[in-house]
Design a protein around this nucleic acid. Structure first.
Length: 179
DNA sequence: AGCAAGATCGGT
DNA sequence: CCGATCTTGCTG
């Protein structure tokens, strides 16, 4: 079952952990592939000094100010596309960075594998026929740590436990082999 | 208009 | 640890 708008229009700190263990579907027309989401990070509002919205509304982060369910894609280090899911109500700039899926560890590697780039900026996961999310087939537990690659941020944002990853023991379990 | 820095990755 | 690579957004 594909997620509806309401799922995404909650606070990012609720949406992010709920995305662990859900299914990312990439339809390239002739063939569609399904991946289980294993790792995400939450970025929350203009006050979050690690978030791209910390300087307010800009052309790059504009989609984050939309209602949840849209895709926020941007280029980092001149060569890697980052896939984010916009969360929260309209006017609240929040997003979930997809850091890992089954088969691919790392946000830059998974976008390269799924052929996701600037063209997906603003894509609506509720309506799209090329990219969407579906409910988790199995309930997964997760652990939390601080976010990666945000040394530029100040405290307390740098240390917020807003990185969520599937428990290692559940990764090795056979229950995720269905994907 | 110029420039520093970046939500990364792969090779030393 | 370091370089690749180029867009973004701040600063002047």
């Amino acid at each position: 079952m594909r997620f509806t708008r309401e799922f995404y229009c909650r606070d990012v700190l609720e949406v992010a952990p709920d995305l662990i263990g859900t299914i990312l579907v990439r339809n390239k027309g002739i063939n569609s592939s399904r991946y289980l989401i294993t790792e995400v990070e939450a970025y929350r509002g203009e006050e979050d000094q690690a978030c791209h919205a910390r300087f307010g509304l800009t052309s790059r982060n504009a989609i984050m100010y939309d209602a949840g369910g849209k895709v926020y894609v941007y280029l980092v280090y001149g060569m890697y596309w980052m896939l984010n899911i916009v969360a929260g109500a309209a006017g609240t700039p929040q997003a979930v960075l997809i850091r890992g899926i089954t088969g691919y560890d790392g946000p830059g590697k998974l976008t390269r594998a799924l052929e996701i780039d600037k063209g997906f900026y603003g894509e609506d996961l509720v309506m799209s026929d090329t990219l969407w999310l579906e409910e988790s087939p199995v309930k997964h537990r997760f652990i939390q740590t601080f976010r990666i690659g945000i040394d530029y941020a100040s405290e307390p944002w740098k240390s917020m436990p807003w990185r969520y990853l599937i428990r290692p023991q559940e990764l090795s379990a056979s229950k995720i082999s269905i994907v």
